[in-house]
Design a protein around this nucleic acid. Structure first.
Lengths: 350, 350
DNA sequence: CACTACCATCGAACCGGTTCGATCGGATAT
DNA sequence: ATATCCGATCGAACCGGTTCGATGGTAGTG
């Protein structure tokens, strides 16, 4: 078997010029019905399929979206499941628009910057999706210079297009739920300040309190890294001092660590302390007691990130951020019944 | 700012032919020191960076590895964390060899087949990594015809190159551990027969029993889908009948379901029943009690899959499968102390 | 000194598509 | 009947690299 047939082979067989064959194969106008038919038939007979690289080089589009994740996976929002769902939605949206998704995992932000630079220089992606933007974002300058569209996943500090969970509303929902259960003093185990989503979650917490006319007590707001052990030791240290009947954790692994600490302090969940958290992972589902939590719909986060990026590539002036609503899932850890509100997956544009 | 400089710009500026510039830029022989220097300097001054698409088209290599995952993510080995780690290792190995990783998630095997066909026809990948092969593998014919190298992750039924966890040994280790704890009647909650890794896990279970001189009792081998609810109902139904003091589960979510069922049957873990399982996920770590399990080192699974694929692309006759050893992680659910054996990450070639 | 090797370099062809400008013929307008 | 326009088609240039065959010059060998 020889090499694969090219468009020239098709043209020759159909008895037309190469340019005509190209027009016919791409379903463009200015080709007569008969010619189009001849060309398509020739292509069919030869088993012709266009060479994607050649196509890309010729028209200057790569049909590629680059996903850059500048954080080692085990730290990604404290949950690998999150990432998997994100990917799934992103891939679907990309594929729906005829784009490939190419994956770039970096262990540090510098590595991510290097990776981005290399993608830009090689002109190997039509657009970039970048997760976990931080305050430094060393690649911003490069991005601006090369005029390649990009979208952040997560709220960046710099002014740039992004898609994020509606963290404020997610937390408002969860805390509101605890309040509805009759709790008046609700502790908040938040994540590190350096994450913008932690700032947003704090805001949601405060709004819920305010709406209910409850005082905001700084002494009830704690911080730990987004891992079980850190949450455990933080709670173990700080919990004994203050009176509270419920605890809201910024992530489910933190909730789990908190619960372990509380138990050792002689307080049972949910009897003595009600718990709610964010991030409906496998852990939250299967933990005993099952955790009341906010499902962040990561799938849609990924989906809209890709979709928005495609819009930008197509030249739409798509400014405003996209916020994906979360959905409260009530389970035993907060003592309530089951069920919970349904939230649609149509994002709200802020 | 004009368009990016091309190699012709560089050649012109350096006062050499395009072909010479190409040789110089790629560090190939037959270029004098001075010429090479002139070219590199010109490139530097112009800010030249090669256009990856053009390069790929010219030399016929895409520098792309396609990852095809023919299973919706939430079913992926019953664990998204597994997938995330897999990706991480795969990406690293691919990057180390100068390859991109492009992601293709399919919801069904037919979709995966379509995706593979499209990749092959467009000649858009130098090689393919395909997860979760099944008995049908409708794409095998296409793969053979296009002569594009590929590697399966997981043992396929057909004869084809693959990388997999050493499931047999992983399970032998875990069951052996239960035996060492003094258990004589060990139930096995396995996954569905259609997965080759479940067959392998059963084998490991049997070997461990045999080595210890324990009888194999079919009535102690159960099956459920790889989700918590299925495991729960299976154990709830079957556990009351048979006497056993330990249970080995093929995955950690199954272990969790089993534990829930056992509790409802009035048997505590680990006091009444010791538990061990496979798949060291977040869930296994943080569950109460923490689960004794086998860490499958998915990172290395992904890493070696990519590495082996690159070997195949480079023309090495790399036949034998690669098996990644697992590592037993002993936790409370099996009542033992802590620690556990260390396994190296150098794979064993069978 | 003639003959061969080989290094350095060059121009042209090539990879496989798309696109642009020119051409030609037939239908419509004047 | 002639000018105008437009649909269909063609050839050539282009995208930005790599590679191959040819050439010229220099050094080594008999």
């Amino acid at each position: 078997m020889g090499r694969s047939p090219t468009i020239r082979d098709v043209a020759r067989r159909a008895g037309v010029a190469v340019s005509t064959a190209s027009l016919a194969l791409n379903g463009r106008p200015y080709v007569s019905k008969e010619t189009r038919f001849k060309v398509l038939q020739a292509a069919e007979e030869l088993g012709y399929h266009p060479h994607s690289l050649a196509k890309n080089l010729a028209d200057g589009r790569t049909r590629n979206l680059g996903l850059i994740t500048p954080i080692s996976l085990d730290h990604l929002f404290g949950s690998a499941g999150f990432f998997a769902n994100l990917l799934s939605g992103m891939h679907r949206a990309a594929a729906d628009h005829g784009y490939n998704l190419s994956l770039h995992i970096a262990d540090s932000e510098e590595e991510a910057a290097a990776c981005i630079r290399s993608l830009l220089r090689g002109r190997s992606a039509d657009g970039l999706i970048i997760t976990n933007p931080t305050s430094s974002c060393p690649y911003l300058e490069d991005l601006g210079r090369h005029r390649v569209p990009f979208v952040f996943i997560g709220r960046p500090l710099a002014k740039a297009p992004y898609v994020d969970n509606d963290n404020v509303e997610a937390c408002r929902l969860a805390v509101r739920h605890l309040i509805d259960q009759g709790h008046l003093r609700i502790a908040f185990l938040n994540g590190p300040e350096r994450f913008t989503f932690c700032a947003d979650r704090l805001l949601g917490y405060r709004i819920a309190l305010k709406e209910a006319g409850l005082p905001y007590d700084e002494r009830l707001v704690w911080r730990s890294e987004l891992v079980e052990a850190a949450a455990y030791s933080t709670v173990k240290e700080l919990a004994p001092r203050k009176g509270f009947t419920a605890l809201f954790a910024a992530s489910d692994v933190q909730a789990v660590g908190a619960i372990r600490a509380l138990r050792e302090l002689g307080r049972q969940v949910p009897q003595d302390v009600a718990i709610a958290c964010v991030n409906n992972s496998e852990l939250a589902q299967h933990f005993i007691p099952p955790l009341t939590t906010v499902d962040l719909h990561e799938y849609w986060l990924g989906h809209w990130a890709a979709k928005r990026l495609v819009q930008l590539i197509q030249g739409e002036r798509a400014h405003h951020p996209i916020l994906i609503p979360g959905e409260l899932v009530v389970r035993e850890s907060s003592k309530g019944g089951d069920g919970g509100g349904k939230a649609s997956c149509k994002p709200k544009e802020s």
